[in-house]
Design a protein around this nucleic acid. Structure first.
Lengths: 257, 257
DNA sequence: CAGTGGTCTAGACCACTCG
DNA sequence: GAGTGGTCTAGACCACTGG
């Protein structure tokens, strides 16, 4: 009689199936998106989850570790695993006082988003290249403004191929707090940033007005390209940043040893 | 007779010992620093390393995975594990054409560093706060200029507590290509970035001259705080960036699924 | 002390690449 | 088919936290 060893497929021999630890990740993320798991809340222990979902503790562990890397969870030896306070749409990075003016206490601020518009457009050269679309192919354009208190700190322009998200409901998007949470709940889609870059460019009139930015100065722009779990390019997002005496803290650049 | 199971200490019951997978990491990094392993070169297979260093394949695996996360190695299923082409001092991030002008081919450029000076100074307010020193405590200040071809792209100012690196040999530093490689070889010290942030500030006269930057415009500044493997703060580095039509590509923000 | 996450092992099978 | 990395299991022990 063969002993129970590696039952990879769980009766599903497809080559394209998700790994068990990825299913673990998805389950956790769905609980996050649905609100069943809230920031600050503790998860069941690894062994409990293993029993509950009928996989080994090591597999649960690997799945949770991936979510720790993504900044969704954090762990404390001897205590447990809990959900971080994270702003998905902003992209993990809080605002702090600029180091060059750091007499203040290190207050960490999370800006708040307001979605200004969701429109159907045709891809311009930049968007087409980033998302690997043909020129003028249909995309959704989402414009959003980030505020830290009363101060405007960033303008987002996100572009998503309409082919991938055909029935994106504009009103739904507007009502939600988190756009990425919306994607997860409506499309079971988890975005995974694959490339980021940083550059400077001059703003157009509309952008200047929204950011109250002067015409003569270039603005810092932070671009991010994201895929879904199948590797398809889903979003190209440009973020125009308005630093006052504020800095963007990119912490946790690597896993801690 | 007890079967061989978990022999954690390897005859070293200290509580502060490094984990085996961290020793694996150090060995690999030392081979990188010494030049025994070169960019593009393949490592022995996981099983070979496991036999060679008398640990299990899973432990080798975990160590290598950490180095993949740090961008030092990359893996290809069915092929092997190889050393990436990486510029330690620059911090992993290549220069690419700015997306807003992306008619060009996606040429990736690695800038070249020139160390301008290594001096002993006393910590100013910003440095003291970042490195958690007392005001005016002794630090090394290293100034370096980054060029992409003939174009100056960044100015680095790094501060390191003299207490941690008492005998830093100035001539040694100057002769080396990589400062972090130098630290690894001379001090067996591996820096681990723990915090990064991004802000804008005006440059002083010296900085303006080196970067050929105008007085009236603010410059993008990228700060990075690093510890050694014991968690001691070792370096506060400010990088003043001069984007032309160039962008800084921050790829591999998260582990790929 | 019990319970949690962290490390480690041994062994199995899967998926991919190449000759 | 041989060899590589990728996933998974079962079981062990360690290190930390709290009551």
């Amino acid at each position: 009689m063969p002993q129970k060893t590696y039952n990879s497929a769980k009766s599903k021999p497809l080559p394209n199936r998700l790994a068990l630890y990825q299913i673990v990740m998805q389950r956790i993320m769905q609980q996050l998106a649905s609100g069943q798991l809230k920031p600050g809340q503790y998860l069941p222990s690894e062994w409990d989850l293993a029993r509950q979902w009928q996989v080994s503790q090591g597999t649960i562990r690997k799945g949770l570790n991936e979510l720790v890397l993504r900044g969704l969870l954090q762990r404390q030896q001897g205590i447990g695993t809990l959900v971080t306070h994270k702003n998905w749409d902003w992209g993990d990075y809080p605002l702090v006082p600029s180091p060059s003016q750091s007499k203040l206490s290190p207050m960490v601020n999370w800006p708040v988003v307001e979605i200004l518009s969701v429109t159907a457009e045709s891809a311009d050269a930049e968007t087409a290249q980033q998302l690997q679309l043909r020129l003028a192919e249909s995309v959704w354009k989402i414009v959003a403004l980030w505020r830290n208190g009363y101060q405007v700190v960033a303008l987002d322009e996100a572009f998503l191929p309409m082919a991938i998200l055909p029935e994106l409901n504009i009103h739904f998007v507007h009502r939600r707090g988190s756009f990425y949470g919306f994607l997860l709940q409506q499309y079971q889609m988890v975005l995974n940033g694959v490339q980021q870059c940083l550059w400077m460019q001059y703003l157009n009139k509309d952008q200047q007005k929204l950011l109250k930015h002067s015409e003569s100065e270039a603005c810092v722009c932070w671009g991010r390209l994201s895929t879904n779990e199948n590797g398809a390019l889903v979003e190209w997002r440009r973020r125009f940043l308005c630093f006052g005496h504020i800095a963007l803290q990119l912490e946790g650049m690597h896993a801690e040893v």
